[in-house]
Design a protein around this nucleic acid. Structure first.
Ligand SMILES: [Mn+2]
Ligand SMILES: [Mn+2]
Ligand SMILES: [Zn+2]
Ligand SMILES: [Zn+2]
Lengths: 138, 138
DNA sequence: TTGATTTTGCAACAATATTGCAAATCATGT
DNA sequence: ACATGATTTGCAATATTGTTGCAAAATCAA
């Protein structure tokens, strides 16, 4: 398993305390993180603005991907495969648990193809499923 | 086609100027609307807070549904079928055009079933496809 | 170790969202 | 049509969230 320093170097990014801390948080967390989650965890050590800028940098470098939500929020999660800048290939299903509220990358579940009406050209697709996760099922 | 007054009455909601105006905007617009879009169109006549409260009311009554995004925004679109409070059945694909930036409800394209890992219980699902829409294709 | 480059924190600002409350509007029954 | 109560609205205050410029600090490459 790669650690945070490896990931930063692999992407030719400066290795800084804040980047390491935020990346470690992603690595240690199962489930996606919103900006607010990160802020709660590390805002004693780093500035809010740094979190914004770090998330943007990670996203641009294909270190994290985004998950759409319906609450004026964006969730972020680590990219498993090597995603290139601007060209992510994380077309897996995301699962949001209504009970524990975790968002889980189902890396092995690919977003299925759909047949669109004539003229529509699909480029990226995202699928979010809500329900009860395997943990909370019991 | 039902007009805004019909829709409000059918949902036992008071018929007010702001609700009519916002609902008419949805009816007249092809494509989904964000809070900001609505504000631009009607904010001379109604307060921002009224827009928030109206969207919430419409959503709770199944008049509009939400579309998840990755830009700290929520899109709303009219429900075609009669959705009941809290129990929407708008599981159609949404298409976001990278060029004209419209979000279109593909009412005839159902979100496909996916096989989830053991233990996950799906309750709702959403699918958003980005690309070039039929209008912009030409 | 040095100097150039990048990143960070701070401060100021902008934009977006929430809440309480009084006034206005609306629905209902007369 | 009018009175009444219930609902909705606008306003103001406040809170939360996101953006930008710039100087100081940290990082990188030589
Ligand atoms: Mn994911
Ligand atoms: Mn729709
Ligand atoms: Zn759960
Ligand atoms: Zn288009």
């Amino acid at each position: 398993m790669l650690d945070s320093i490896d990931i930063l170097k692999r992407n030719t990014l400066s290795v800084t305390e804040s980047r390491k801390a935020i990346l470690d948080l992603f690595i240690d967390t199962d489930g996606a993180l919103a900006h607010a989650d990160i802020e709660k965890n590390i805002s004693n050590d780093f500035d809010r603005v740094t979190v914004y800028r770090t998330l943007q940098t990670f996203f641009e470098n294909g270190i994290i991907h985004q998950i759409p939500t319906t609450d004026n929020t964006v969730l972020y999660a680590l990219c498993k495969d090597k995603c290139e800048a601007g060209h992510h290939h994380d077309e897996h299903v995301h699962f949001i648990c209504n009970l524990c509220d975790k968002t889980i990358c189902l890396d092995e579940v690919t977003v299925p193809q759909v047949k669109l009406p004539k003229g529509f050209k699909p480029l990226q697709k995202a699928m979010v499923v809500k329900g009860i996760c395997a943990e909370c099922k019991n």
